[in-house]
Amino acid sequence: MAERPEDLNLPNAVITRIIKEALPDGVNVSKEARRAISQAASVFVLYATSCANNFAMKAKRKTLNAGDVLAAMEEMEFERFLEPLREALEVYKQGQKGKKVSEQKRKDKEKKVDTENNKSRDEEGEDDDERMEEEPEVENEAEEEEEVEN
């Protein structure tokens, strides 16, 4: 799966942007701090996955579901994330419903956005690569999962 160790890193450009958004304007984040936060985020994913997987295993399920992830957050004492996560999931599900209808529209729009982004690509090369590969893979996963569940 992950052939190179870098595959387990999250894209720096995106992490940096999230950090900047969280902090007050004009705060300088050292390079070392950014790298550390990025690594911490990867470890967080692994930790959350392992907790969530325990809940799934207890319930004798093979597939991790939303409830498992939420239970994991509670176990990890990140209760403060529960509300925002539930809200985000709600919005996300709404979006998924309307997705098929607006698929074509979205693709057209993405093309436009892509050309706009070309200008800033040097700066955020890594980030853009990620975005490109993201959508199709995610849809495949959805199909696989549906088969399993039915």
Binding site: T63, N65, K93
Partner: peptide, 21 residues
């Protein structure tokens, strides 16, 4: 295997985690 919602939630949680940290 991981279903779509769990994947979305973990990704979102990671963003919240980065902000919080």
């Amino acid at each position: 295997s991981i279903n779509q919602d769990a994947l979305f939630l973990t990704t979102k949680a990671t963003e919240l985690f980065v902000q919080h940290l």
